[in-house]
């Protein structure tokens, strides 16, 4: 079953002459984990905003084509309805939290929807647990680090129990340790809840071996769409300035001398395994 189906999507912000994204055709299966790559300004954020109705409901502009998410035509469905199916997490955690305690922030969207109190309480507990921040429940956002704040933002979206989560550069304002912890949280959600996930990220080292699929954008278009290994290994991606995990470059370098890697590794773990197997075979 498809969770996202996009046909011939072009969007131009009002006041601009050039489209921010053009001729996007894309379908994403339920349960897929997709990494969206591309330099800043390539249209990743615009694409993300088309998935939950911020485009065309919040941003004015000219939209062509069709976006169907969870069976709903985005341009004909109000954002608050879409938000219950598509959870959106933005770059800056500070501007996604409105309340003075964590639990109130997680409850915020549910309260806005007029959901009964018992149900709110159940869902808040669920979301805090899923993200692993039950101990922060009564804290105020002032006291939290950027990484913790971003986890609260994720929990507040998760409380809506969306089928799809879209995360637009969720770690770009965080330090590496917090970024790693956010990525681990995303992986946990995917594993435990089976949520479909689209994440725009520059930190490929942390995600390359975890995602099912990588979509590369450039100047508002999708230029490449495939399995992570084929994207990161392919030489034709080099000129586009796509970040490549260091282990990929290392493995390619080694392969010029010894055929150690039949399949280029995407993580330190995979790299280690292949080297050990090779050494083992050699010595024996």
């Amino acid at each position: 079953m498809e969770i996202v189906k996009i046909e011939g999507l072009t969007f131009t912000y009002s006041g601009s002459d050039t489209p921010a994204i053009s001729d996007i055709n894309l379908s994403i299966e339920e349960g897929e984990f997709v990494l969206l790559l591309g330099p800043s300004g390539c249209g990743k954020s615009t694409l993300c905003r088309c998935l939950n109705g911020l485009i065309p409901h919040f941003y004015a502009g000219k939209m062509e084509g069709r976006v169907i998410v969870a069976g709903m035509d985005v341009s004909k469905t109000p954002t608050y309805v879409l938000s219950q199916h598509v959870g959106m997490v933005f770059q800056n955690p500070e501007n996604q939290l409105f309340s003075l305690t964590v639990e109130n922030d997680v409850a915020f969207a549910l309260e806005n929807l007029g959901i009964p109190r018992d149900e709110i309480r159940r869902r808040v507990d669920f979301a805090l647990k899923a993200v692993g921040i039950e101990d922060l429940r009564k804290r105020s956002p002032f006291e939290l680090s950027g990484g913790q704040q971003q986890k609260v933002a994720i929990a507040s979206v998760l409380a809506l129990m969306p089928k799809l989560m879209v995360l637009d550069e969720p770690t770009s304002s965080l330090d590496p340790a917090s970024a790693k912890s956010i990525i681990e949280t995303i992986l946990k959600i995917r594993k435990e809840l089976g949520t479909s996930i689209i994440v725009a990220e520059h930190r490929v080292e942390l995600l390359a071996d975890k995602v099912d699929r990588v979509i590369v954008m450039q100047k508002g278009r999708i230029i490449k769409d495939g399995r992570p290994r084929e994207i990161f290994v392919s030489e034709e991606m080099v000129p586009y300035g796509i970040p490549v995990p260091k282990v990929v470059s290392m493995a390619k370098g080694v392969n010029k001398y010894f055929q150690v890697f039949n399949e280029i590794p995407l993580s330190s773990e995979e790299f280690e395994q292949d080297i050990r197997r090779f050494v083992h075979d050699k010595v024996r």
């Binding site: 939950n52 911020l54 954002t79 938000s83 409850a107 709110i120 979206v157």
Partner: peptide, 14 residues
């Protein structure tokens, strides 16, 4: 907008 602000007049509260 994403957190459904103003979705209903009968807002509830945690």
């Amino acid at each position: 907008e994403v957190k459904c602000f103003g979705a209903t007049k009968k807002r509830t509260s945690l």
